[in-house]
Simulated assay, not measured.
Amino acid sequence: MIHRAWFFAPVLLAGASLVACRKDEAHASEATPSTEHDAGAKDPPGLVRVDRALLDQGRITTAPVTRRPLKGDVRVPAETVASENGSAEVGALVAGRVASIDVRDGEAVKRGQVIATIDSPEAARVGADAIRARARFVAATRKHDRQKALETDRATSGLAIDEAFAELETARADVAASRSLLASLGIPEPGNADGALLLRVPLRSPIDGVLVERLTSLGAPVGPEKTLFRVVSNDRVVVEARWTDPSAPAPGVGTKVDLFPRGAGTNRSACKGAVIATLAVVDDKTRAKRVRIAPEGPCPIVTPGSFVDAAFTSEGGDAGAQENGALVVPRSAIIDVRGAPTAFVTAGQSGAFVARVVRLGRVTNEDAAIEDGLAEGDRIATTGAVLLKGELMRAELE
């Protein structure tokens, strides 16, 4: 029995030592946390991680949010429209059918030039009424002259003379009315009717311009309610911009404006213009005010229907006035994420950014004023926001 006890004693001591070593290792492991990011852990919403190499290569750059004046100009989309006297619709005042079209689409026309003619039974009736009115006037004139002659011989009564004079004046008024109606229709006064009376109504351009639209064809029926042609003058145009910036008053009359082709940027030569009116009414759908701009001199990019960019400068108005003391970031730092303006703020770890929705104030082509969402000193991505947005979208899909 003694020999057996000495045999098991070393084995028990070795087992106890092994258990003690394992416990010590477990306590040491618990006391020393891992400093590496767990690849399997889920990042909080809005957190984006990118390779540090993107920052080293300059594809993503950062800068602090500061208070400074805005730089750049306020640029808004605009459309060229005809002025009040720069567009005209041409149609027939009587029913009929198109007999001729004398001007091609795109052809220049002068004021009063005949564009088309209309065969109109109604015009024939107006002509016949004019002939009848003229005949009644001739008869009334002769009757009145006879009554005046009889008055000299004392062979008529005063009542007869008065009646003849009234008939003459009525006939005279009928002739004047028929001539006015013919003139309004553009129909020359017809001669004596010795056969079929066929009158063609001419359609004339009311302004100098270009025939830009034809809405009829030969033989087509027409009526007073239908527009047949549109004429537009290239010299009588205005540019209409939509001012949607609620943080600044709309530009006043006289504010200088540079007009650029839509999306051309500042590398293209601009036309000069000036604000001629700002409509106080706010559009119900766009919540914008209409600002009307007159080009200063010929401008090839300003033609009716064309779209341009209007850049409001600081000369002569409030539109370009700089906003002092505001939090300002480069415009490239703001990007649309799910319909909200967003900036990417650096997080504690290198290459980590947090997407933060901001409320914008004034925005120019270079800068954006921040009203809420960022604080002075926050470090944000000023370039590479598109890359960060892509990483954010990809992370949300995983």
Rank of each mutant, 00 (worst) to 15 (best):
L55P: 06
R49N: 12
P69A: 00
R49E: 10
L70F: 03
A63C: 01
D51Q: 10
G58A: 00
Q57W: 07
D73H: 09
T61D: 04
T62L: 00
R59H: 13
V74I: 12
V65D: 03
R52S: 12
R68G: 05
R75S: 15
D73I: 01
K71D: 13
R52Y: 10
T62W: 01
L70V: 05
V50M: 11
G72Y: 08
R52A: 14
L70D: 02
G58E: 01
L55N: 04
V50E: 03
R49S: 13
R68L: 03
R67Y: 01
T62P: 07
R49W: 11
L70E: 00
T66R: 12
G46R: 14
L54V: 06
D56T: 11
L70A: 03
V48E: 07
L47C: 10
V48G: 10
G58F: 00
D56E: 14
D51I: 06
R68T: 01
D51T: 10
D51F: 03
A53K: 15
R59P: 03
L47M: 15
P69H: 05
L55Q: 02
G46W: 15
G46H: 15
G58T: 00
I60M: 05
V50I: 12
L55M: 11
V48Y: 14
R59K: 12
A53T: 15
T62V: 12
G46T: 11
G72M: 09
R67E: 08
G46Y: 15
G46P: 09
V74M: 10
I60E: 10
D51N: 13
L47W: 13
R49T: 11
D51H: 07
A53E: 15
P64L: 02
D51A: 10
R68D: 06
L70C: 03
V48F: 12
G58W: 01
D51Y: 06
R59Q: 12
P64K: 05
D73K: 06
A63V: 00
P69V: 00
T61W: 01
L70Y: 00
K71C: 08
G58R: 04
R75G: 14
T61K: 06
R67A: 05
R68K: 11
T61L: 05
R59A: 09
D56Y: 08
L47Q: 13
D51R: 03
V74D: 09
G46I: 14
R75E: 13
R59F: 12
P64V: 00
V50Y: 05
V65P: 06
R68Q: 12
A63F: 02
T61E: 06
A63L: 00
L55T: 07
